[in-house]
Amino acid sequence: MQITRFGHAAVLVEAADTRVLIDPGGFSPDETFALEGLDAIVVTHQHPDHLDQGRWPGLLERNRDALLLCDPETASIVEAGDWTQNGDGVETVVGGITLRGVGAQHAVILPTIPRIGNVGVLLHAPGEPTMFHPGDSYETAPEGVDVLALPLSAPWAKLSETVDFAQRVGPKTLFPIHDRTISEAAYGIYWGQLTAHSGVEDARLLGQSDTTTA
Rank of each mutant, 00 (worst) to 15 (best):
A9V: 07
I113H: 01
A107P: 03
M1G: 10
E31M: 05
G101F: 08
S183K: 13
L99Q: 05
P111K: 05
L110G: 05
V200Q: 00
R100V: 06
G192R: 08
F33T: 02
F33M: 01
P129F: 08
E184G: 10
I113D: 00
G170M: 14
A9M: 11
P29T: 07
V11M: 09
A185Q: 14
A186I: 00
G25K: 08
D164Q: 00
L205A: 14
F165T: 05
G58M: 05
I97G: 05
V94G: 04
Q208P: 00
K172G: 06
H47W: 13
T140I: 13
L59R: 08
D146L: 07
T173E: 11
L152T: 08
W83D: 03
E143C: 00
V121S: 01
H178Y: 04
A149T: 00
G7W: 03
L21A: 09
P142D: 05
P72D: 08
S160D: 15
S198M: 07
G144E: 11
D71I: 00
D39Y: 12
L110Y: 04
V102I: 15
S153L: 10
G95R: 05
L150I: 08
G89N: 02
F27M: 15
S76R: 13
I97F: 04
P171N: 13
S137A: 13
W156N: 12
G81Y: 10
I113Q: 01
P72S: 11
R168F: 12
G96R: 09
V145I: 07
H47Y: 11
T44W: 06
A10D: 06
T44D: 03
T212G: 08
V11H: 03
L38M: 04
L205W: 10
A203W: 02
Y187N: 10
H45Y: 12
P72E: 06
L152D: 00
G101H: 08
T162I: 15
A34G: 02
V200W: 04
E73A: 03
E128C: 06
I116M: 12
Q46R: 14
G87L: 08
P114H: 12
V94R: 09
L21C: 13
M1D: 03
G95D: 05
T140S: 06
Q193F: 12
R64C: 02
V20S: 04
D82M: 09
G81M: 03
L67G: 06
I3L: 14
D164P: 00
I22S: 08
S160M: 05
W191S: 02
R168S: 01
H8S: 14
P48M: 11
L194I: 15
F175L: 15
I189V: 15
G54M: 09
V13E: 12
P24N: 06
A186K: 09
P48F: 15
S198H: 01
L35C: 09
T140A: 09
G135C: 07
A40R: 07
D65K: 14
L150F: 00
Q193A: 15
M131N: 01
G25E: 07
S76Q: 11
T212I: 06
T18L: 04
R55Y: 05
G188Y: 01
P29M: 05
Y138D: 13
T4F: 09
H124Q: 13
A149E: 03
P142V: 01
L206Q: 07
R55E: 02
I189G: 14
R168Y: 10
T32E: 01
